[in-house]
Simulated scan of single mutants.
Amino acid sequence: MSGQEESDKGVDMWSSLRCLGYLSSFNLLVAVCLGMYVRWEQTAEPMILVIFILGLFVSAIACILYYYFSMESASLSLFHLWFGFLQGLLCFLNSPSLEKDIKEQVTNYLLLASVAVRTLWALTERLCGNATYKPVVLTSSELLELLGFGVASISLVFHKSLAMIALTFALTALIVDLRMKSPLALPNLACFAVITAVTFFQSLAIQTNPFALSCYLGRLICEPLLDVYFSGLSASERWKQFLSAGRLWRRFSLFPLTFVELAFFVLCALKLGDLKAWYLVIPGFCVFGLLWILCHMVFLVTLWCFHTKLSECQKAWAAQRSQTLNLDRIMASRGMRHFCLISERLVLFCLMSTIILGAVSWQ
């Protein structure tokens, strides 16, 4: 009988936690609908009304798929994609006249309530031990909301749209960084928050709704941020998707990294044309640029060697699957741990050279 009571108590707790999640989503739904209505009321733009009605239609379809056809994954995917798009529109379709509207103020309070309840739900779920930690770098819901927000940025002019898409990629990298428990995850989060709030939107002259933007960012970041403390997955478990990937896919990941590094170096070089004291900056750029190139060339070669050694470990693991050895022990026996410890200093030098080169170019 006691076991049955404990089981019922666990079910009741899980139901209560799910109610918190539903309440957060319901607050977001009401806030988005009210916010879109206010913007249509202020501007009389027919496209906003069309998007608003289409949003209600999509929400109804998602509910039908969820409750009547038991298509939970399709329903949630549609919900997250569309609401990422609508939250983006709430951020970008903003004007000073909306601040005095009482319905807009109610929308802002609902957005804050949504992110607060979502954070409370995520925290309570982890404190009660009901959270499930999966070795993923990015969940499907996060990916779809990021995609929807990026699509919403197309409503801006071209160069501002590109900047917002770059911000979306930066947010994606930040979420992955938090979920992987990188040593620089929390400093990166602080830098992202400061740069976004202080300089990014001001430099682009974009007047966003801070409540909608805070709600969007808070709902996405709260769970990865809490998992930095609560997640008990080991380093190899967190990187399982990458470690178990094929040799070709892992080495293919070097190309985006190389492209980003080359783009950074080119931007640093182009930035020199805007400086008045170029005769002082160019010698420093040449010295630190050479140091940057050397460090990152060695870094890329080291990454290539890492992938080679990892492929050898995977082959050895595949040949010994029937035994008690796992991939972690095989990697340790083949010197991967020592290899990574030595490479930490190289990563530090690369990071410092990047900071110095950026400071010289963007002073």
Rank of each mutant, 00 (worst) to 15 (best):
L17F: 05
K309D: 08
T208Y: 08
S182C: 10
H80I: 03
I64S: 12
A185N: 03
K100H: 15
I154F: 15
T132Y: 10
R337P: 00
M297I: 13
R118S: 06
L86S: 00
S16E: 09
P46K: 08
E41V: 14
G284D: 05
I53T: 14
E99A: 11
L65W: 05
V198G: 08
Y68K: 13
S7H: 12
F265C: 03
K160S: 15
Q202Y: 12
L49D: 02
G335I: 10
F158R: 12
N326P: 02
G335E: 09
C313F: 06
L351W: 15
I282P: 01
V58F: 07
A269R: 00
I282W: 03
L272Q: 06
Y37R: 07
P46N: 13
A122H: 01
G218E: 02
N209R: 04
I53A: 13
S16V: 09
W292P: 00
L156D: 04
L267H: 09
D12Y: 14
V360P: 00
M331K: 05
T172V: 07
A318N: 11
G10P: 06
F252P: 04
C295V: 06
T132N: 15
F285S: 00
K315E: 11
W239T: 04
S24A: 14
A235E: 15
L357A: 00
G55F: 08
V347G: 03
H307W: 09
S70N: 14
F255P: 04
A332T: 13
V360W: 00
G335M: 10
G284W: 04
L167Y: 11
F201S: 00
A170K: 07
A62H: 02
K315C: 07
G88M: 03
W14F: 15
E99L: 12
F52N: 01
S15F: 11
M336K: 06
L341E: 14
A190V: 12
A152H: 01
D227V: 01
S97K: 13
V38L: 05
D328S: 07
F57A: 13
I48R: 05
V347L: 09
L225G: 00
M1Q: 15
Y37T: 13
V50L: 12
L93P: 00
F57E: 09
L280D: 06
E142H: 07
N108C: 09
L310T: 00
E125Y: 01
L56K: 06
C222H: 03
V117A: 02
W40C: 02
C33E: 08
